[in-house]
């Protein structure tokens, strides 16, 4: 039992392709709400760019000595598109090989890839939130402004929300479905081995 059922090989092949959409949509978003900003300020992270209210956010952050957010802060932007394309190719390889073990390693790779991405995001956030200009106008002792990796955090008068955007949702949904396919095959295998045992 190391074969993926043919119709799932087709499905895996087809599901690999939506990852290409990630190149054309925002991947992650950070939303900031404050009393003065009831409509919210948004930063959208694309695979190679930052969009949204970056200039307004930078203007506010300079009071507390945070560095200006810019594309140059993210060398990762150079390589993300290759990583995405590699994952598409790997998905197709899984489909073509039709072997469950290949799917397993693909899932492992996706999992650690995602984990590494979050770690990388955390590392950037830590650096961004802690490396403050010592001459900043507002210095609150012991306070740093690290944005949340995922979820909500209160930063002075701002409520910050860090959440997946369309791109990340596509990755999450595709990966989840791959996992479901893998589990389904394990279940099939389990059932058939029980059946042959009896």
């Amino acid at each position: 039992m190391n074969k993926i059922l043919p119709k799932f090989r087709w499905l895996i092949g087809i599901l690999s392709l939506p990852l290409l959409i990630v190149l054309f949509v925002p991947i992650w978003r950070i939303d900031l709400f404050a009393p003065q900003y009831p409509e919210g300020l948004t930063m959208k992270i694309w695979h190679n760019d930052l969009k949204g209210d970056i200039d307004i956010i930078n203007g506010l952050n300079h009071y507390i000595g945070m560095r200006h957010i810019s594309v140059e802060m993210f060398p990762e932007f150079e390589i993300i598109k290759y990583v995405i394309i590699i994952f598409v190719i790997l998905g197709l390889i899984v489909a073509i090989s039709g072997r469950l073990i290949v799917l397993f390693w693909y899932i492992v790779l996706t999992f650690f890839g995602g984990l590494f991405t979050l770690y990388d995001f955390y590392r950037w956030g830590y650096e961004y939130g802690h490396n403050l200009d010592p001459t900043a106008a507002i210095k609150v002792p012991g306070l740093s402004y690290q944005p949340p990796v995922i979820g909500h955090k209160r930063l002075l008068n701002f409520d910050a929300y860090s959440l997946p955007d369309i791109g990340a949702w596509i990755v999450i949904i595709v990966a989840s479905l791959f996992i479901l396919i893998y589990i389904y095959h394990l279940w099939l295998h389990h059932k058939s081995s029980k059946f042959s045992a009896s």
């Binding site: 939303d31 909500h152 929300y161 959440l163 997946p164 949702w169 949904i173 989840s176 479905l177 479901l180």
Partner: peptide, 26 residues
């Protein structure tokens, strides 16, 4: 139907998470 239900289920789940995390209006 299992596959499609799963896709549908996962999608709904994530949407719920996403809306739950948004702040309430002033």
């Amino acid at each position: 139907s299992i596959i499609f239900k799963s896709i549908f289920g996962v999608g709904i789940l994530f949407m719920l998470i996403a809306t739950a995390c948004k702040p309430k209006g002033m």
